[in-house]
Structure formats: C-alpha cells, structure tokens
C-alpha cells in the first residue's frame, strides 16, 4: 500500500447518509445539500442541528442528511423552524426551501420570520420554477420564460414581475445576513459555501435571521442538459438576480467564529 502518498481529497461528508438521491441528474439541489453537510460538519454542529424540509423537490432532503429533520407543509417551514428554535434555543435550526415554497405560498411566513429576527438560517433554492410539480411558473420565473403555466412566456403585464427575494427581505430590520450566491461553477460554489458558513455563524451568535439565496438549475423542467443549464443560469439568471450581499449586520464578525467542537 502506498500509504505515504495517499491523501483523501474528497469524501462523503459525515452529515450525509450513504444513499443515492432522487434528484434528476445534474440538478444543483445535490450541490446545495453537500455544502450544508460540509459546513455543519466543519462547525461541529451535526449533532445539534435540526433541518426543516420544504414541499418541493427537496421534500425528501431528510433522507440524505444524517441528522434530525422535520418536514413542513408547503411554505410553512419558517413557522415550523420558529417553533423548534423557540423550544430548543441551543439547537442549530435551518430551513431548506424552493422558490415556490418560500417566495409564493410561504411569503408570509418568511417575511414574518425575518422581521422577527428569528434565529434560524434559511437556504433558499431559486431555480425559477416549480420543479416537483412539473415546471410551472414561480414568482422567480424570468420575464418571457416559458413554463407549463406560462406557455406563451411570462408576460409581466398579466403575470407580474419576478421577485428578488433577497433584496426584499434585506429591508427588514430583523434580518442580519441576507445574501445571494450561485451554484453554476466551482468559484461560485466555493463562495456559496462561505456564505452558508457565515449564515450559520450568525445564527450561533444570535445576531438575527440569516438567509442564503442560491441560484440553481432545473435541467429537467428547463429542458436542457445540465451543462447548458449552468450556462443559461449564468447568462439569464445572474443578470436579473445579482450575486451579492444585501444585508450584513454590522455586528457580524467574519473571521473569528468557532463551532462548539
């Protein structure tokens, strides 16, 4: 055995079950899952975390994470997370929600949770459509984008304009950390991971509500190969949904925080 030269450079995070996922090939839900598992492992939080799954393609997220999970009614994850966090203030609590779940049916709950400064972290998957139900229009669907319920392309006159959720929530005083990242290439994925880490640190430090919006692909309902879907994301989504920090509370200390190892 070449035990001197062999170095592990990549392995399944401890926060993951050893299971194939049900996500479509090339879907970035898997990438987002991995980043969360890595961050929680690095922070030593795996044993203290409770996740809240949405209704959407990620409804089965609880199958893949190796820690406690609950599953919320459509859009209500921030309310359930609130109940959990208020009952177990020391736990790390996060929701994982799609754009239909969070920005359409669940807009009330997310706004209320953010404005209360609820100490939860929200991972928000923006893939511009309702994946699970077969690709209907979402609040995030781009102008002109064809979906199964905007068959002529989203007509902003009749169907309104897309919601920039991160910007919207950033206006709330209870929100401490609200940023947007993307999952379309390695550089952006690394940036996304850093942001997820910060969001969880914000929760640990009790600074307020934290959310990371992640621009994601849905190759199946977009009718594209995974590679083309990433290009489409970069070319169409990023210009409409700029990557950036929309709310970073001044008390956030970026470098220091350590987990509870």
């Amino acid at each position: 055995m070449l035990d001197t030269d062999v170095k592990v450079v990549y392995q399944r995070p401890r926060g993951f079950e050893e299971l194939p996922t049900h996500y479509c090939p090339g879907c970035t839900h898997g990438v987002a899952h991995r980043l969360i598992a890595e961050v929680l492992e690095e922070m030593g939080e795996l044993e203290h975390t409770i996740g809240v799954a949405p209704v959407g393609c990620a409804v089965f997220a609880y199958n893949y994470f190796a820690f406690d999970f609950v599953e919320a009614p459509h859009g209500r994850a921030p309310a359930m997370a609130t109940g959990i966090k208020r009952s177990l203030p020391d736990a790390t609590v996060f929701t994982y929600q799609g754009d239909g779940d969070l920005a359409s049916i669940g807009m009330g709950e997310i706004v209320a949770a953010a404005s209360r400064g609820e100490l939860i972290t929200v991972i928000f998957i923006n893939n511009t459509n309702y994946g699970m139900t077969g690709g209907q229009m979402a609040p995030t669907t781009l102008p002109g984008q064809v979906t199964t319920s905007s068959p002529m392309g989203r007509d902003v006159e009749r169907q309104g304009y897309p919601i920039r959720t991160a910007e919207l929530l950033s206006s709330l005083d209870g929100a401490a950390y609200v940023v947007r990242r993307s999952l379309h290439d390695p550089k952006n994925i690394r940036m996304a991971k850093k942001a997820i880490r910060t969001a969880f640190e914000v929760q640990k430090q009790g600074l307020g509500f934290s959310m990371v919006e992640l621009l994601s692909t849905c190759p199946t309902n977009w009718g594209m190969t995974p590679a083309n879907a990433r290009v489409w994301l970069a070319e169409h989504m990023v210009p409409y949904y700029p990557i950036g920090d929309f709310k970073v509370s001044s008390s956030i200390a970026y470098d220091k925080p350590k987990g509870r190892d």
């Binding site: 319920s149 068959p151 002529m152």
Partner: peptide
C-alpha cells in the same frame, strides 16, 4: 395553484383562458 394530481387542469387553462 399547482398541485398534483390536478395540475393539468390549471396548465390547460393557463393557455386556454388568455
């Protein structure tokens, strides 16, 4: 609002009504 197994009804009307 979309929900399986009813969604085709909504999808059909999304084209038909306009």
């Amino acid at each position: 609002y979309p929900i399986t197994p009813q969604t085709e009804l909504l999808e059909y009307l999304s084209a038909r009504m306009p």
